[in-house]
């Protein structure tokens, strides 16, 4: 996983057509850490998220990343895009394919619309994760706000 530098973007500098991308690898270690979080029962048993054997029994080539973890990674990239003073309002995704441990994913954000409402600078964007095989396991849309320079 690359560590990102969170730079602050401002409403005046972003508009429809703007793109942002980040590439990272979701390692087995990341998944195991997620499953081991206090209160996460997904890690309590052998399953398709942590066991090669169970994943293969389920017809998968190897253990997969929980869908919600892929969503959280997409959110993380959006958070990097809006910076400390921006706000992600919502992220809606569909899970189209499995993400496997150690997949290298590129997250792309494409700004599709923007406007101002009562002093709030809102934006809409398409977002997807693309793996090294050219597949898009997650696609969705996001609503966010950015601060104004003034």
């Amino acid at each position: 996983m690359v560590s990102s530098t969170v730079e602050q973007r401002y409403a005046e500098d972003v508009g429809p057509g703007d793109e942002f991308e980040e590439t990272f690898t979701l390692s087995t270690d990341h998944v195991h850490r997620f499953l081991a979080m206090p209160g996460n029962r997904l890690g309590a048993n052998q399953n398709r998220f942590n066991s090669e054997e169970v994943a293969k029994r389920d017809g998968l080539p190897g253990p997969i990343v929980p869908g919600v973890m892929s969503l959280d990674v997409a959110y993380r990239v959006l958070g990097d895009f809006v910076g400390v003073w921006g706000k992600v309002r919502s992220l809606e995704v569909s899970f189209r394919r499995s993400v496997f441990h150690n997949d290298t994913l590129t997250s792309k954000i494409l700004v599709t619309d923007s406007g101002e409402d009562n002093g709030r600078h809102w934006f809409k964007a398409d977002i997807f994760l693309e793996n090294e095989r050219g597949e898009r396991p997650l696609q969705g849309v996001a609503d966010f706000e950015l601060p104004a320079r003034g």
Binding site: V2, F24, H30, R33, F34, M37, M69, R76, G79, V84
Partner: peptide, 16 residues
């Protein structure tokens, strides 16, 4: 602690 563990798991580095 929960916040730190979650950030480690998903690679979150946002200073917020």
């Amino acid at each position: 602690e929960q916040i730190a563990a979650y950030c480690e798991a998903v690679g979150e580095t946002n200073p917020l």
